[in-house]
Design a protein around this nucleic acid. Structure first.
Lengths: 356, 356
DNA sequence: CTGAAAGCGCTTACAG
DNA sequence: CTGAAAGCGCTTACAG
């Protein structure tokens, strides 16, 4: 690890060779610039002969289109945006976004499109970010994640003239296609699984009710519990490990009225809850069953390994990007439903201690 | 959650009002377009009087520059890039990137610059991504993370004519400024801490030696162990929880020659190692001390809570972005060193079982 | 089917 | 200090 001299830093790099333009191609092919543009964009009205000459001229020169020039004349950005509005600590603990973005990228790479990412603190900075992305036309459309109840972003983005796709269906009227994963099925399967193991006292540690997917999971929990004749107990949190731990302490506080199973709305909270239980001297799953959501990489590597609900987040990202690109290209699109979330049973769930 | 009709999807959103251009401003101020450009870019050679008229005309019209037009004429992208080349599972488990990007964003927001993100599978797709970002001038510069030994990206990016900043100093000659955090200090502090607790048999679960920061931590471990007269034992992994668990099983395999402490090169591996130890019937820290690296959010929420090494990743992102923007603006920049990593001692480390 | 031209909204020499 | 003009590299009516 050698220290380099400061002046080494300033060594200027070589200017890249001048790129051929459409004018060079036109000259070589002996046609006008306009015709080159038509040929290269696969538009009708170019004779097979000319097209041939143009394409081979372009190939010979190693021509590739200038995105910025196309941007200016066609008023498109050839990019899509993702604005993440979560508290830093919460987004860091949650593997959702890296996985999701990797999925988006699989669709983008090769399409010549690019992903513009903005991380903002929730609140008005978020709206300003969408505004400036639209004002500068830095993106042609956005993927809306973490949908909220009565989400004001829907109207804002429509008003800004951006295309969009939502992850899940909003609870308000929306002009945008939705790409959804039925995570309620995962919650229901979890409660069924626990009920089958004899649990009659099951609690749910929910995410914030202002977030649609958190509310949806909670309702699914309440419905499934009700179907088994179980009185649902719910504690709401902000999805952080800290509040997940606090909720667990609260639930385990009264030894005479302690749930035998806790269904957490995400994995980080479940792991924090597991630690709280162990610290309180409980043995999981003998004394308490625990389940998570999202099937984090770590879920199978903790002790006991964590029963969780798996969704294909990367596929979600890829499909969302594909639908958004189609929308931008004015192709007809419909709401899309991905395969539902499914339960992955592991060691953290077993028979209720009160089970015969 | 109402299903919407398919035809509702196609409701077109309002066309945004036509934006004022520099020509409108010139007309209102009664000057030429060129002068407007000079005034708005704070360039010398505009009379105070004209500047005044131009600025108020721009304000009155609500003018803001068209990024795409500026891009085309000035050949800049007003964007910086981040290319993440890690296996999906590993990047998802590691909170580094979300935190880092949030830090980058704090510097970017308000600067009118944008972050372009690409996630690629390691290998040639990575080089192609840098090439196309440069060819299309989608970015003016890039932040190089996860530096490797003899990193070919340095030469590639220099050749492509992009600006760059590296996270940490490369082991090859580099024309780019480096923004570094001394993580060796954190490893050294960890080993000192363990030695002070009486540990004489300490192992290290390292990341891949092809990654500079993994190699650096490993060397720091070996040096610190040597300083205490301890024979260093090292197992190399790919940084994944899976291989962290396997390395731990290997280290704990021989009961007669089992380390009393294990220093992991990241937190996910430490958490997986903790589980392996517990599964083997060991009590942490009574029978085995364990430390991580990066001080993940979860570290304080597991049981026992994890001793780890903390670095200010968000600040790293902010400074890296700032240095890169300065480089792009041709301002003089030097290598920057952030405050060193520091040990956060928690419950997972205590006296060696062999300690008197 | 094809050409000549205007236009996207800026920046930047070049004259004065 | 200021204006008129060319240019960045495309797309897209408008004529023929």
């Amino acid at each position: 690890m050698a220290e380099r001299d400061a002046d080494t830093q300033r060594r200027s790099n070589e200017p890249p060779a001048a790129r051929p333009t459409i004018a060079d191609v036109a000259r070589l092919a002996g046609v006008s610039k306009g015709l080159v543009s038509f040929a290269l964009n696969d538009r009708p009205g170019v004779s097979a002969d000319s097209r041939e000459r143009i394409l081979s001229a372009a190939a010979e020169l190693g021509w590739s289109p200038s995105v910025r020039a196309r941007s200016l004349s066609s008023n498109r950005a050839f990019a899509i945006g993702l604005v993440i509005a979560r508290e830093p600590g919460i987004v860091a603990a949650d593997p959702f976004f890296p996985t999701f973005m990797a999925g988006v990228e699989t669709e983008l790479s090769g399409s010549g499109q690019t992903l513009v990412l903005a991380t903002v603190t929730p609140g008005r900075q978020e709206a300003d970010t969408y505004r400036s992305l639209a004002l500068d036309k830095r993106v042609d459309g956005v993927i809306l994640t973490d949908l909220r109840t009565g989400d004001e972003r829907i109207a804002l983005i429509d008003e800004l003239g951006l295309a969009a796709v939502t992850l899940g269906r909003p609870d308000t009227d929306s002009p945008f296609p939705a790409v959804s994963i039925d995570d309620e099925a995962g919650v229901t399967a979890t409660v069924d699984h626990l009920a089958q193991l004899g649990h009659r006292s099951i609690a749910h540690v929910a995410g914030p009710s202002s977030m649609l997917h958190a509310a949806r999971r909670r309702r699914a929990f309440e419905r499934a519990a009700g179907a088994h004749g179980i009185a649902p107990r719910v504690v709401e949190t902000d999805f952080s490990a800290t509040e997940g731990a606090a909720a667990t302490r609260h639930l385990l506080g009264d030894p005479d009225d302690r749930p035998t199973a806790i269904v957490y709305s995400n994995d980080p909270m479940a792991l924090a809850g597991l630690a709280v239980a162990q610290r309180a001297g409980l043995i999981v799953p003998r004394d308490l069953s625990i389940t998570g959501f999202d099937n984090t990489d770590l879920a199978e590597h903790v002790y006991p390994s964590l029963t969780s609900v798996a969704t294909d987040v990367a596929a979600w990202g890829a499909i969302a990007a594909r639908v958004l690109l189609a929308t931008i290209a004015s192709e007809p699109v419909d709401n899309t439903d991905l395969p539902p979330a499914r339960l992955v049973a592991r060691e953290s769930t077993s028979h209720s201690p009160h089970h015969p």
